[in-house]
Computed example of a mutant assay.
Amino acid sequence: EAQLEPMMLLDPTDCFPDRERCVVHSVRYMMQIFSLKLAKVPVNTSSVQLYGCIAARDCLDSLLNYIVNRSRDDPITVHQGSLIEMTGPKRGITMTSPVLVEFDMRIRKGEQEEDDLQLIDGAIDCELTTPSRPSTNRINGDCGAVDITLARVPGAVEATIDVIISKVQSGFSLSLSSFVFAGGSHEGIELFCGTIGESCGLTRRYVIAVQMGSWMHLKFNVGQKGSEYDDLERYCRFKADIHGCDCRQIILEHASISLKVTWLIVR
């Protein structure tokens, strides 16, 4: 038993013997990417089909941690000035040392890949001087530009959000956003925007950096198909913690939404 305790202490989801006063797992600086926006597109083009990747490498893992990862066979249609849907990260991005953000995004033009246009290609270093208040940097490329908004969040923990939608009575539109405290105010991150037609779990888990002791707010906008009424808004909030998980359930007229937020320390 004496040999098992240190091994169990390495697991921040179930810290034994005293989760409340744990001194083994501690908060750290993390990067949070709030949004990616298509800032410029080729002249006379209102929307484009994008594919490719944007990913981060931090000191914990030299492998790519994808923020966007789309194949040419599964592009996304984006208008100038609109958000580019983020598909990651898969885990929190630690920022106790500079983070490398790599990108290779392309515009699909026709049947052959050689006809496609290079939107952006290259890499940027995000230094430790990155402010805690979200700031926007423009990545210029051969055929357009992307704006990336990010911040270095002090004393942060990792929140993983799982969403399951059940008891669906009829189809509805759903948008989900997270608001976290950063640089003195709460800033929003769009997590999901789409249509729900049947019971399901949202296709990915959402990973957010949250400052320890602050509140993470989740906002749901629900619209009934063919309804004359305004979208229904629902809110819930979760207080950041080093260990454990929190669960909530939102009961709507046409569905039930179950939420689970798991708190982890990025190691």
Score class of each variant (00 low, 15 high):
D147M: 03
E158H: 07
C247S: 02
V48R: 01
T45S: 15
M95A: 11
L128D: 14
C245G: 04
Y206W: 03
T94V: 05
S166I: 06
L117Q: 07
I250N: 02
D142C: 12
S227Q: 03
P134S: 01
I76E: 06
S35D: 11
G52T: 01
I164K: 10
Y206T: 01
C15I: 02
E233Q: 14
P89L: 05
I165T: 07
R70E: 01
C236R: 08
G81A: 08
E111V: 13
S258M: 07
E113V: 11
R106A: 07
T129V: 09
R106I: 00
S185I: 05
T130M: 07
D121G: 05
C22S: 13
S173K: 13
V210H: 06
K167F: 07
F34T: 04
Q118S: 11
G171S: 09
A56H: 05
L10V: 01
L150P: 02
S71Y: 13
S35A: 15
N140A: 14
I139P: 02
S166G: 03
K90C: 11
I251V: 15
T13E: 06
C59D: 15
G155W: 01
L264V: 09
A240C: 03
Q169I: 12
T13G: 05
R91Q: 13
L128Y: 13
R138Q: 07
S214Y: 02
Q211L: 06
I76D: 03
V23F: 06
D147C: 04
T262I: 09
D18V: 03
E198Q: 15
L150W: 14
V68D: 09
I76G: 04
I139S: 01
A255V: 06
R28Q: 15
I84P: 00
I33W: 06
E228H: 04
R70H: 03
G144A: 13
Q80T: 03
G223Q: 11
F179V: 07
I196T: 08
D74E: 09
P75Q: 12
C53S: 14
Q3D: 06
I196M: 13
V48S: 00
Y51H: 13
F172Q: 05
V261R: 04
G155S: 11
R248S: 07
I257K: 04
N221T: 00
H243Q: 06
H243Y: 07
R204V: 09
L100C: 01
I242Y: 02
F172L: 02
H25D: 00
T129Q: 09
S82H: 01
L191T: 11
E127T: 14
G213R: 09
I33E: 11
P12H: 01
G184I: 12
E158W: 05
K37V: 11
Y51D: 07
T94M: 04
I196W: 12
L259H: 00
K219I: 14
I265V: 15
A2Q: 10
M8T: 07
I196G: 09
R248G: 04
Y51G: 08
T130V: 08
D61K: 12
K260D: 01
K90S: 12
V207Y: 03
T96W: 02
T136Q: 12
Y29I: 04
E20A: 14
W263I: 14
Q224R: 09
T136C: 10
T160G: 05
Q224V: 04
E190V: 13
S178H: 07
N221R: 02
Q169T: 11
L83A: 15
A240S: 01
I165K: 11
A55R: 05
D74S: 10
N44G: 06
N44Y: 12
